[in-house]
Amino acid sequence: MAGSVQFNLVSPERRLASFPATEVQIPGAMGDMTAMEGHAPTITTLRPGVLRVAGAEGTKAYVVTGGFAEITATGISVLAEQAVPVEELTSATLDALVADVNAAAAITADKDTADKTASDLAALREAVGL
């Protein structure tokens, strides 16, 4: 069994989770990545997707939208603009989330990024099965 790292999930409004985890699967902007103990220090931005954390009490999954993750050898902090545990996610909250992300993308991003966001969101919807 691999050693554990301190996992923190923080949203602007509060700290959502903080516990030791063995592995964390992060929806990075360049693709999913799994971080474990001893990972090279990395900062990556997030795309909308599912964050999976394996800890002592099984795997927890969160739906996150933009933000970034900071990975060091001993700790992983995910700073997500919005984060919702998958089991608490209803299709209404998902719709609100999607609308919000789309609104943000429409303002700031060029067409490529907006398209990418849209496909990310479609994939996200499929992944959580709502």
Binding site: G28, A29, P41, I43, T44, T45, G67
Partner: peptide, 19 residues
Amino acid sequence: SLYDYEPSEEAILADLLPR
């Protein structure tokens, strides 16, 4: 910076500044 940046530093900065 001791970190690896993914994507590039500039891209992260551009993404994070509005946030």
